[in-house]
Amino acid sequence: MATVIVVTSGKGGVGKTTTSASFATGLAQRGHRTVVIDFDVGLRNLDLIMGCERRVVYDFINIINGEANLNQALIRDKRVENLCILPASQTRDKDALTKEGVERVLNDLKQSFDYIVCDSPAGIERGALMALYFADEALVVTNPEVSSVRDSDRILGILASRSRRAEQGEPPVKEHLVLARYAPERADRGDMLSVEDVLEILGIPLLGVIPESQNVLQSSNAGVPVILEDGSDAGAAYSDLVERFLGKNLPHRFITSQKKGFLKRLFGGS
């Protein structure tokens, strides 16, 4: 039975697409048949982050409308086996996402995939609601910053009341916190919310902490999910996150600051 996972946050720019790309890639690397769907109709970006923007022919809305079949629209990743990308439409509007249409496509995908990762758009409008409606599990991406934490709490409320599982009285959507763009030394200094602060406020289990990292921008420049960048701390953090999602008990890394020596403090460097 395939598992549907939504990557959501409420607020924009916190790392949903970065997380979707690396999470889906990590699952596929470990041998799980994975498809990642862009729900951001009109503002698609997952294709750019995955580096397959020039291979898009048909999209999610084409399939919903029956203008193409799944095999025509799914883009097979060239780097990782078992990984497919389903891009969003760039020209239609979000009303094209009907509940029935999305459900039909998800049911078709469940026949040939183990994990279906839904990359949600920001906000709480139709696209975001459709992305989370059919979810079994949710990765709630949050930055250690007031507006992001508040919006995450709002999304948790929506998952608990307006998902299919909530409406049909089934066991609730399983929630995971992904704390992204974390800077341990700033948290230590007391000018950034700490991991513990965010956990205390949101009250959901922590799946991973992704450190603020230059590698994220570099890898998006290149169209390579950061999890594939060897030697990158953000990539290593995503690998750990995937392992934990699959049930491995790994300690959290990148949550304490590297103590800088006196000379380094004096002469700078980060």
Binding site: A187, G190, D191, L193, S194, D197
Partner: peptide
């Protein structure tokens, strides 16, 4: 600067 406590 302990603004994180205020944020929390």
């Amino acid at each position: 600067n302990k603004s994180a406590a205020l944020a929390k």
